[in-house]
C-alpha cells in the first residue's frame, strides 16, 4: 500500500501541472529540485543530446521574444505610474518600488536569455515602449483604483500567458522523455524561471486587488479593454 501511495504522490505534480498549473506552489520548489537531481545522471548518460525539433525551437524562440516584450512593457507601466501615484498616495511608494524592482529583474533575465540564445527582440519594440508608457500614465491619471485595475488586468493576462508556456514546456519535456532523449538543463532552467516569474506576477495581482482595484470607476470596461490589448500585443509579438 505504501508503494502505491508513493507512486501516486510521485505522479501527482505532473498531473497537477497539466490540469491546473496554478495550484500548490509552495511545495514545488523542493520537489522540483530533488527530481532534477535524480534526473541528472540519467540525462548525462544519454548525452549528447538530440537536436531540438524545429517546432520546439520555433516555440522557444517566440516564447522568449514575447516574454521580453511583456517585461519591457511591465517595467514601463510601473515606471510611468509611480511618480503620479506616490504623490497622491505616499504609502504606496514601497509597494510600487517593490513591484518595479521585480519587473526590472524579470526584464534583465529575459534580456540575457535572448542574447544567449540568439533570439531577436520584437520588431515593434519602440511601439511597445510607447504603448506601455501611455497605458501606465493614463491609468495613473485616472486615480489609484484605476492604476491598480490596470495592474490587475495586465497581471491576470500575463499570469495566464506564463501558465500556457509552462504547460507547453512540460508537454515538450514529456515528449522528449518519451522519445528517450535527455531533457537539457537549459530547458529545465527556463521552466523554473518562467514558473518563478509567473508566481511573482500573480503576487502583484494580489497586491492590486488588495489596493481596491475592483473599486475603480468602470472596472469591468477598463479591465476588459486592457486585457484585450494585452492579448493582442502578445499575439503580435509572438509573430513579429
Amino acid at each position: 500500500m505504501s508503494v502505491t501511495m508513493l507512486r501516486r504522490r510521485a505522479s501527482r505534480p505532473l498531473v497537477q501541472e497539466l490540469l491546473a498549473p496554478g495550484i500548490s506552489w509552495p511545495q514545488r520548489s523542493c520537489r522540483r529540485a530533488s527530481s532534477t537531481a535524480d534526473a541528472q545522471p540519467d540525462a548525462a548518460a544519454r548525452s549528447p543530446k538530440a537536436p531540438l525539433r524545429r517546432e520546439d525551437r520555433d516555440f522557444l524562440d517566440s516564447a522568449l521574444r514575447v516574454n521580453q516584450a511583456g517585461e519591457l512593457a511591465a517595467t514601463l507601466i510601473y515606471k510611468a505610474q509611480t511618480p503620479l501615484l506616490i504623490r497622491a498616495h505616499p504609502h504606496l511608494s514601497s509597494l510600487m518600488r517593490h513591484m518595479y524592482d521585480q519587473e526590472a529583474g524579470h526584464f534583465s533575465t529575459f534580456n540575457a536569455l535572448l542574447a544567449k540564445h540568439r533570439v531577436r527582440p520584437s520588431a515593434l519594440y519602440p511601439v511597445w515602449q510607447l504603448a506601455a508608457t501611455f497605458l501606465g500614465w493614463s491609468t495613473a491619471m485616472m486615480g489609484r483604483e484605476a492604476a491598480m485595475a490596470c495592474t490587475e488586468a495586465v497581471e491576470t493576462e500575463i499570469g495566464e500567458h506564463y501558465n500556457g508556456q509552462v504547460r507547453q514546456l512540460l508537454e515538450m519535456t514529456r515528449e522528449m522523455e518519451a522519445r528517450g532523449e535527455g531533457v537539457s538543463e537549459e530547458i529545465r532552467h527556463l521552466m523554473d524561471t518562467v514558473r518563478r516569474i509567473r508566481d511573482e506576477e500573480l503576487e502583484h495581482l494580489d497586491h492590486a486587488v488588495e489596493n481596491d482595484a475592483k473599486k475603480a470607476n468602470g472596472h469591468e470596461i477598463l479591465t476588459s479593454v486592457i486585457r484585450g490589448g494585452c492579448k493582442t500585443a502578445i499575439w503580435i509579438s509572438e509573430r513579429v
Binding site: 543530446k49 538530440a50 537536436p51 531540438l52 524562440d61 540564445h117 537539457s184 537549459e186
Partner: peptide
C-alpha cells in the same frame, strides 16, 4: 533563419 540557439542540444546537422 536559425531561431533559438541551444548550447546543450546538438546543433543543426
Amino acid at each position: 533563419g536559425r531561431p533559438y540557439h541551444s548550447y546543450e542540444h546538438e546543433s543543426d546537422p
